[in-house]
Each structure stands twice: as C-alpha cells, then as structure tokens.
Design a protein around this nucleic acid. Structure first.
Length: 382
RNA sequence: GGACGGGUGGGUGAGUGGCUAAAACCAGCAGACUGUAAAUCUGCCGCUCCUUGCGGGCUACGGAGGUUCGAAUCCUCCCCCGUCCA
C-alpha cells in the first residue's frame, strides 16, 4: 500500500510520534513543512532543503495554475520532476487565497472567481478544478478547496463558510474517486468553523463521515488570539480519528509549535521562517534576532551559539547584518537557511521528546526561554 | 576683470511672500509579519521641555543687513561653486 500512517508513540500531553509513508518517501511526524508556493522554497535550492533534511514541502495550486500552468507541469512530468524534488510534496488548494486575495475574488457555492494578482485576468477555481490541477501536479498530498474566512467572523458567516467547505469536501472526494489515484495521492479534507467551537465540532464530525485519509484544520491563526487557536484545535483533534494524520494549516510561531503538537497535531506549515528571514528576523533558541538592528553591526558571534546549522558554523551576526543592510541576495539565502534549520530542528527535538514521553518538559523549557527573551526586549541581547 | 547660473535639513532634491520644521526619494533608527499579491509593510527621523497634545519653547534654507504684520522665497552688500567671455 502506497500510503500509510502509523502512530509510533504517544506522549502524556496528547502528542503523537508518527510516520507517514508516501511513494516519495517517509515523513516523520510531527512534521514542519516549509512553504514553497511557486515550486520553490524562496531562497533555498533543493539541495539546501535536502541538507536541511526537509522531508516534505508545500506547493500552491493557485500560483502554479497561473504560472507556469498545471498542464505545462504535467507535460514536464509532474511537479516533483519539474522542480527536481524527489521527496513528498503537499499542494494547498487555493483555499487560503480565498482569504488572502479577498479583494480580488468572489465566492459562491460553485467555487471562487479570482482576478489574477499578476495581470488582473479572471479565473475560476471550483473544488473539481482545484483537484484537476493538483492531480496534474502530482503532489503526494492534495488539499480540498475550502473557504477560509477572516477572524473574527460572526456565527452565521462562519457557519455558512463551514457548510460550503463541507459541501466542497464532498464534491472533492467524489471527483477524486473518479479522476484521482489513491495510490498516488492522498486527499485531505479541511475543517473550518472559525472561532466557534460548536461549529468546529460539527465541521469535524461531518468531515470525518466523508472518510478522508487525512484531516486538516484550516482557518486558524488568521488574527484570533493564540489561546483561541488552541481551544479550536483541541476541540477538533479530539474528534478526528486517531489513525489518520492531522494537519494544522499555516502555523505557527516558534513558541506556539509545541502547543499544537501537544494537542495532537501531526503536521504544520508556515511562511514565517522563510518570510521573516527575508525581512531580517532570525529565530533562535534564545529568542528572535532582528539582524538589521545596529547592535549587531560589530557582533562577531553566530546568530545562535547553540545552533548547528551551516550558517551558524561559519558567519557572524555582523556579516549577516551587512548582507541585510546592503540588500545582498546572500542575505535571503543564509537567513532562510538558518530559520528553516531552526524550525526543522525544533521539530526533531519535539519528536525526540515525544519518544521519551517528555514533551511537557521540552515545551515549558522552550517557551520560558523564548518568552523571557521577548520580555527583555524581544530579542537576543547577549 | 566681465556675463550668466547656482548655494535648502546626513545625501539627492522640491519649494518664488503666510497653509513650511520645510514635498519626495535615499540613507539612518525601530517595529510588524502565522495554509506567501510580501527581497514587503508600518512608525520615527533639527534640538529641547512637559500634564505626551493635531502641546510649549528654541534653532534652521551660504553670511550680514534691510523691506514686510509675516521672508527659504523680495532688496542691498559680502562669501563660495559652476559655465562662458576677456
């Protein structure tokens, strides 16, 4: 069987140590998945990602459909071959663009009409169309199209979006059953329901009835407070089947990751390590380093003295600040490498902690260190 | 020696009588970023005081005077810079 998910260990906190097997290799969970929207994790080569030991990366249906086009990628042998990445890929459906391109789209029960952010041309994405694209791309994990809404949103709006998302999930499942290949791709359903617990529970229960091989929790970390994100996640994971992977979409900050893991989340992705890197924000075991700050101009130390990444083995804060200040390409490359290492390494440590049944200890250590750093000025000082 | 043109806040450079502590951009300083419309966005950026307010005081458009209720803007002289003519 091409796809397989097994839970190898559980932690008293509720965290799970697991492994997803795919035709392109295994993914150890809990996993952090670097975001590679346009068939590239910005600033990193595929060799870099392999060196970082990224086991899976994301691609985006909407972006790849617009450019270079999914048919072109199909002709080029699929997304893996096209981008020369032989490990697993998860494609997001365009559901998040329903949220982020709010001024450029219209949603109705059929699907979403977008005006391209590139040239203004109009495009229609339905659950079926999104899957047609994802099948052409050949990702290992495909996401259903969902309606991701803003926070806060009132109950009726949230209920409507969750209902539509559920309807789209059913259509997606049916389309995939007819046109997809379960030996090549896993299709994940997405729970919505905003910050309304009852709607979350209803959404989760109904989605489970559709029997997907994996479940995602969407529409969180879109502006609501972190404790709310956790409450909603907890309400949902409690109702998802234990033998299926759970993917919390779009999270999170370093200090939040272990919280989600403790709530039974197996997969997450986030643009923070890559985007923040480009913006000069570096994550460390001692808090954030805003590398453009003048205090680092003559700082000979690595970003993080406890970090074993290639950047920290070789370059000083002073040099990295210089690269950032002068707008050099290398700044993006090195900063991204470090941040991804930090996220992926944090996940490795989390997996290790779960294996020992010590996630709570790890989590409180990490959080107290990071929170102390934020209190003392939000960044590493010495 | 003469004829033009020009000297504005760290830089470039708008501004020809009040709406100008002075556009814009750059540099500088700080912050934000959560399924990527993001190598982006936001704030500060003369000094100073406080009850931090679309607050008060001071200083400021080469220099010194002058005209005016009011001057970066008009006048006089001087000093610099550029171009051209002797």
């Amino acid at each position: 069987m091409a796809f397989h998910f097994e839970v190898l260990a559980t932690d008293p906190s509720g965290a799970r140590l697991g492994r997803i097997t795919t035709p392109h290799g295994a993914i150890d969970t809990p996993a952090f998945m670097p975001v590679g929207t346009a068939a590239t994790v910005k600033g990193q080569t595929q060799q870099d990602l392999e060196a970082l030991d990224a086991q899976i990366i994301l691609g985006n249906t909407y972006h790849l459909y617009l450019r270079p086009g999914h048919e072109l990628i199909r002709r080029m042998g699929g997304l893996h071959k096209f981008m020369s990445w032989s490990r697993p890929i998860l494609t997001d459906s365009g559901g998040f663009q329903v949220f982020s391109l709010s001024e450029l789209r219209k949603v109705n029960d059929d699907g979403v009409t977008f005006r391209s952010h590139l040239d203004g041309s109009e495009h229609f994405l339905s659950p079926e169309k999104a899957l047609e694209i994802e099948i052409a791309l050949g990702s290992d994990i495909a996401m259903v199209l969902d309606e991701c809404i803003e926070a806060p949103a009132d109950r009726s709006r949230t209920k409507a979006a969750a209902a539509r998302t559920l309807d789209w999930a059913r259509r997606s499942r049916d389309y995939f059953a007819k046109h997809g290949e379960a030996t090549k791709q896993m299709l994940f359903g997405i729970v919505q329901g905003g910050a309304h617990e009852a709607l979350r529970i209803e959404s989760a229960n109904s989605l489970v009835d559709l029997d997907f091989p994996g479940y995602a929790i969407g529409g969180l970390a879109v502006g609501e407070p972190h404790p709310v994100t956790c409450e909603m996640t907890k309400a949902v994971t409690a109702r998802l089947p234990a033998d299926k992977p759970r993917y919390l979409m779009g999270v999170g900050k370093p200090e939040q990751i272990a919280d989600y893991v403790a709530l039974g989340v197996d997969m997450m992705d986030c643009v923070l390590p890559t985007r923040s890197a480009r913006h000069g924000c570096l994550y460390t075991s001692q808090g954030r380093v805003l590398i453009r700050n003048s205090q680092y101009a003559t700082d000979p130390r690595p970003i993080d003295e406890n970090c074993r990444c290639a950047v920290c083995q070789r370059y000083s804060r002073a040099y990295l600040r210089h690269l950032y200040s002068t707008g050099e390409f290398l700044s993006t490359i090195l900063n991204t490498h470090h941040n991804l290492y930090f996220y992926l390494d944090t996940m490795r440590k989390i997996r290790e902690a779960i294996g020992f049944g010590k996630l709570e200890t790890f989590r409180s250590d990490l959080q107290s260190r990071l929170q102390r750093a934020e209190r003392t000025g939000g960044r590493v000082s010495g």
